[in-house]
Nucleic acid binder design. Structure first.
Length: 215
DNA sequence: TGCCAGGCCGGGT
DNA sequence: ACCCGGCATGGC
């Protein structure tokens, strides 16, 4: 395995050349982005959009509305996102935290120091490292690198780091290789999802046209 | 038609 | 500190 920080920089430019800017995350407000981050756990984004649209149609895509909504109704609305019972609880847990500590406002959450906020998010039941980091990067626009299944798959297939390495080890690779730039982290992670969906599929290990073939 | 999708938890070793 | 079963819908 070649663990060269230099290749992390190189990969970004190759992906950017191939796909251009991704303009992530899909979602109109920081709150919507946070909701999407929880709903998309191990789930196709198309299904998440259906769930979010159900909330929008009922005019209930807000901390207050979901906070006051019966769990049963919430799980019914987010049903298309799958795991709807457990995700309803997870959304409630996150929103309880948002209401109690930040008056239900993402803007206030944004004022908190990034590292202490990450610890608090991780202590919420249903929020693990990827969801916490997605909220911090995409909803709160702070520079932390998000690792997901695509990131691990692409990097391991191209011999940068073993797939079995931990979340923190993958993340550290990016943090130690790149300037802590929110825009860069935003684009880079989005590009991993793009190349993962397009070329680096689970079932097809060949990756013929992958822009990363000649590293 | 089975497999996959932008994880995480809880119980067991 | 790992390992694993469970959670569930919709698209290809």
């Amino acid at each position: 395995m070649v663990i060269a920080n230099h290749s992390i920089f190189k990969i970004y430019h190759k992906l950017y050349q191939a796909f251009g800017p991704q303009r992530w995350w899909p979602g109109d407000t920081p709150f919507e982005i946070a909701v999407g981050a929880i709903l998309t756990q191990n789930t196709n984004w198309g299904n998440v959009e259906k769930a979010i649209n159900n909330l929008k149609k009922q005019n209930t895509l807000s901390a207050k509305a979901i906070h006051e909504m019966p769990g049963k109704k919430l799980s019914e609305l987010i049903r298309p996102a799958g795991y709807y019972n457990i995700k309803a609880k997870r959304l409630k847990s996150f929103i309880d935290f948002l209401m109690n500590d930040y008056h239900g406002r993402m803007k206030r959450m944004k004022n908190e120091d990034m590292h202490s906020l990450r610890k608090k998010l991780l202590s919420i039941n249903g929020i693990g490292p990827e969801t916490a980091d997605s909220i911090i990067l995409y909803a709160l626009e702070k520079p932390i690198f998000v690792i997901d299944a695509y990131t691990k798959r692409v990097l391991s297939r191209h011999g940068i780091m073993e797939h079995e390495k931990s979340y923190d080890e993958f993340q550290e690779l990016f943090h130690s290789s790149l300037k802590k730039d929110m825009k860069l982290f935003n684009e880079y992670h989005a590009l991993f999802v793009r190349v993962g969906k397009t070329f680096c599929k689970l079932k097809k290990p060949l990756c013929d046209k992958c822009p990363l073939n000649d590293l």
